[in-house]
Design a protein around this nucleic acid. Structure first.
Lengths: 261, 261
DNA sequence: CGACTAGTTGAGGCCAGTCAATGTTGGTGG
DNA sequence: CCACCAACATTGACTGGCCTCAACTAGTCG
C-alpha cells in the first residue's frame, strides 16, 4: 500500500531546514495497537465495545515511520493515503500559496494527528516536516473508513478531529487578524506551554524546535521581530531565553499582554 | 426537535448590524428534497443509489428558516444540532476570542453549508448572521449521521465538506500572515468574483453585502484602510465602486497585485 | 427635519518591516 | 582537540504601511 507515484513538486522551496533528501517511507518497524499506547488518552480517547470493531481498532496502525530532522512526511500535491499520529518528536505543517508564499500553519506534538486536510481531497494541500527526530504511526485511510463505518464512537472521534482542526485554523486566523506582534508571541508561548503540560512535560521549561524564522512564519512576523520580542520579554522578566531554551517566568504577565488591546 | 435551551451569550457584541432581536426559528415552511434543488450541483453533488439511503437523502432537510438582515442563525456556545445550507441570500460567520476580539471568518453564498465547526463539539464556536434576507435549509445532525453511516458517497461528501473548511480557513491564515493590505483586498474581490461566477452570476458586477468594517474585520484591516484601497483601486482603473456596488474592470491587474511581493 | 449609520478623506504617529553588521552555536574534517 | 564554516540569532538605524484620530459627506429612517 505504498504511494505508487511520488508527484512532482517544485524543487524544495521551504522556509528552512528542509534540505532535499530522499523521502523515507516505512522503516519496517512492526505496527502496534493503540490499545496499549501511552498517548492513547490524547490521541485516541475512545472505547470500542463491539468485538468486530475492536479488531479493526487494534489494526488501525499499519506501520511506523521514523523521520530525522528535516525529513518530509508528506508534500503538498502528494496523494492522500493515510493520517499520521505523532508518537515521538514534533512536526511542522507548511501551507504553500500559488505564488510561492508559504507559512507554517501548525506545530504538532506527540499524540496529535496530522494530514486531515487531505481527507476529502485525495490530495494533501500542505507539507509536513519533522522538526527533530520523530516517529509517527501510519493510519491508512481505508482502515479509518472501515472503522468509522462500523463504530459510532470512532466516527465521533473522526468528526472531532476534523472540526477541531477547523477551530485551530480559525483561531490562527483570529490571531493573525486581530493581534499585535507581542500578543501573538505571548499567545504562542502560552499555547505551547499548556500543550506540553497536557502531555506531562514541564509547562514552564521547554525547548523550541523551530527557528526564529519558522516561528515568525507561523505568527505572520519577520524573524528579526521575533528575536527582538524574545529579548524584550526577557528584559521585562516575563521569560528567560537561551537560544531555543525557554523558561516562562511570569505566566500571568504574558496573559495580561493578551488582554491588552 | 427544537433546541431546548438557548444558552446565554454575552449581550450582543458584534461588529455591526446585529441588533438584539429574538431568534427566529422554523418559519414553518415545508421541507423540500435536495433532489430537485437547483443548487444541488454546488451543495450536494452526490448520487445515492441504494434505495434505503435514497429515502434518507430525500428527507435530509427537516425545514427551512427565513432570516432577515441581521438575524442570527446560531451563536457561539449554542448547542450544535444541525448544519445549514444557504438557499437564498448570504451569511457571515464571526469568530469570537476570549478577550472579546472578533473577526469575520467567512462570507457564505447560496449552496454553501455552514456550521461544520460544531460537528465534533456539540457546540457552535462561531456565530452566523444573515447579511441580507436569507433562507437556509436545516440539516439535522441525526439525519446526517444516519445517512453518513449508510452511504459511502455521502460520507465522502461530508469529509470533503469538513476538509475544505480546513483548507479555506488555512488560506485565510495564509492571506493574513503573508499578504499586504492591497493584496488582501484584491484576493478577496477575485475570490468573490469566481464564487459568483460558479453560481451563474456575473463575475464582474456584484453587490457587497458587508460594510467596510466587516470586510476589514475579515481581512485583518481597519475600515478606513479598506475604504482607501477601494478608492485607490478605482483611481487605478482596476475597479469601479459605487458604495457597495462593485465592478471589476481589470481582473488581470488585480491578479498582478497578488503576484507582487 | 434631526439623528444615525455608512463611507470618504486627510494629517500624523507608531509598529513592524527592511537592510545591514555582528555575535553565537553546532557540526565537520584535519 | 581545535579550526573552520554555515546556519541561526541578535541588535541597530531607518523606512514605510497601516492605524488612529478627526472632520466631513451621503443616504436612510422615524
Amino acid at each position: 500500500m505504498h504511494t505508487s507515484a511520488i508527484p512532482t513538486t517544485s524543487p524544495e522551496r521551504t522556509v528552512t531546514a528542509t534540505r532535499p533528501r530522499p523521502i523515507l517511507r516505512d522503516v519496517g518497524r512492526e505496527a502496534q495497537s493503540c490499545l496499549g499506547c501511552s498517548l492513547r488518552r490524547i490521541c485516541m480517547p475512545i472505547d470500542v465495545a463491539d468485538p468486530e470493531a475492536k479488531v479493526l481498532f487494534e489494526k488501525l496502525v499499519a506501520s511506523r515511520i521514523r523521520l530525522r530532522k528535516g525529513d518530509v512526511l508528506f508534500r503538498a500535491g502528494e496523494r492522500f493515503t493515510a493520517l499520521y499520529a505523532i508518537r515521538v518528536g514534533s512536526c511542522k505543517t507548511v501551507a504553500l500559496a500559488d505564488d510561492g508564499d508559504e507559512q507554517v500553519t501548525g506545530l504538532h506534538l506527540p499524540g496529535e494527528i496530522i494530514g486531515v486536510e487531505g481527507i476529502g481531497n485525495d490530495v494533501h494541500v500542505a507539507q509536513a516536516v519533522a522538526l527533530e527526530d520523530t516517529e509517527v504511526c501510519v493510519l491508512p485511510f481505508e482502515r479509518i473508513e472501515a472503522l468509522a463505518q462500523r463504530d459510532t464512537g470512532f466516527r465521533r472521534r473522526l468528526y472531532r478531529l476534523l472540526s477541531s482542526a477547523i477551530v485551530r485554523e480559525r483561531s490562527l486566523s483570529l490571531m493573525l487578524g486581530t493581534m499585535r506582534a507581542e500578543q501573538r508571541l505571548a499567545s504562542f508561548l502560552l499555547d505551547l506551554s499548556s500543550r506540553y503540560q497536557m502531555r506531562g512535560y514541564s509547562s514552564t521549561d521547554f525547548v523550541l524546535r523551530m527557528t526564529r524564522e519558522e516561528i515568525g512564519s507561523h505568527l505572520g512576523l519577520k524573524l528579526e521581530t521575533v528575536s527582538r520580542l524574545f529579548s524584550r520579554f526577557a528584559e521585562e522578566g516575563l521569560i528567560e531565553v537561551q537560544g531555543r531554551v525557554i523558561k516562562l517566568c511570569d505566566r500571568i504577565g504574558l496573559q495580561h499582554l493578551l488582554a491588552a488591546s
